[in-house]
Design a protein around this nucleic acid. Structure first.
Lengths: 233, 233
DNA sequence: TCCGCTTGTTACAATTCGTAAGGTTTGGGA
DNA sequence: TCCCAAACCTTACGAATTGTAACAAGCGGA
């Protein structure tokens, strides 16, 4: 279904939580950061559709960051700031921001303004979403996996949901509970089995050795870890 | 390079003056109106780049006007309103406005926000009547598809509706619901089949391999994705 | 009126994906 | 070490979704 990806950059944990909850509720995928350094590192591997940026971060000048983002990324940039002076807003917008929201904000308005940005072609859900990892190439446009030899294997919507979850959080433990939530399945033992099957099918397409999986590793009693070196382009 | 044209629609003369002065100072051409009727009449002869619209006009429902403007797609629409409720803003943005500025406003910010809109021009898709994609050429003048060898295949109105929908949103998921809405079909299981058939016929004309479609891809449970690299001329 | 084209409808084939059932692995305890 | 229960994997099956061929209704032109 290709949900749009929105990044949140703010040093206040409470604000990150509020935004992330509201955005996921509204049907977006989110990635949260408290520091510009971590955010910029993540941009090397992810390609967001919209970036929410707080000015006044401790480890960088927000405006410089905004300017850089606007120039380099295809993403729309929305500033969320406590600085309410008109002059701040004008320079923020001039430096390349697509919108400027003042704290305190209402999450519903943030969602609405993000949707507006996604409507216009600039950030309209980035096409050509391709992730590369360990010789594989996964295209979420054509729903195909391509191996090093160029051989294509289509993957289904359900498999894609799982794959995307992994590709968005490589080398991190993903608990079954998290997975259930992201995949929108009702809780219960029966959906547990359904997830197993999804993962099993995905493993088959990735040609994993059942005895010795290299990419999707099971952590008994805890969840899964995806071990690929992921790069989104 | 001519100056961008901005229209101002507000029933308070003082506001019109302030805005017009600030905008012309900033290098825009402006047209001011106090009534929606006059504004809509002017649209027949002028093609503004940005429209500033006040809600709460005496002779029309502002939101309806905004919606109509947004659909006709030429210009960016910015609402300027005294109604400060979050809900007002959200519905305004949802109905198609590109920005929402609350009175009282600072003219400098209005100018900045207009400039942002001009930076990312809206797609002017409706002018092009010929689309090229992956060796094909689709003409909506003559309702024909032409392949690389120059061989023509006519397509019908119903097929054209589907094709246009795809060509306007390439590489994006189009849900069945969206499609039904755009194609004006009543909901219901029977129309669902009708849509399948339309798409099936279009696929035949595009010589898609049923086992492995390259252009119109089905996402089970979600909708369709058109994978061509589209260029309108 | 007849003919051909378009388009919706019906019926059935094909695909996807959750569910059930049985097998395998894991890790702790005897 | 062996045993066992819980956790996890895989296969097969069936309900839901989607594809397509065949038919019928509607329309316009000769």
């Amino acid at each position: 279904m290709t949900k749009p990806l929105v990044t949140i950059l703010d040093d206040e944990p409470a604000i990150r939580t509020i935004l992330a909850d509201a955005l996921e509720e509204a049907g977006f995928r989110t990635l949260s950061f408290s520091r510009a350094a971590a955010f910029e590192a993540a941009l090397k591997t992810h390609k967001p559709d919209v970036c929410l940026v707080d000015l006044g971060l401790p480890d960088t000048d927000g405006l410089t960051l905004v300017h850089k983002l606007a120039l380099e990324q295809g993403a729309a940039v929305i500033i969320i700031s406590g600085r309410a002076q008109v002059q701040d807003r004008v320079t923020g917008l001039e430096l390349g921001a697509d919108d400027y929201i003042i704290k305190p904000f209402d999450p519903a308005e943030v969602v609405a303004r993000i949707r507006v940005r996604l409507r216009t072609p600039k950030a309209a859900t980035q096409t050509g979403q391709i992730a590369r990892f360990n010789g594989w190439e996964a295209s979420f446009d054509s729903y195909t996996l391509t191996d090093e030899a160029g051989q294509e294997t289509p993957f289904s919507h359900a498999e894609g949901e799982v794959l995307r979850l992994f590709l968005d959080a490589p080398k991190r433990l993903i608990s079954r509970a998290q997975m259930q939530e992201s995949l929108g399945g009702g809780a219960g033992d029966s959906f547990d089995r359904a997830m197993d099957v999804r993962i099993s099918r995905l493993r088959t397409k990735l040609r994993e050795d059942p005895k010795n999986p290299r990419l999707i590793k099971t952590i008994y009693g805890a969840g899964y870890i995806f071990l690929g070196d992921v790069q989104w382009t």
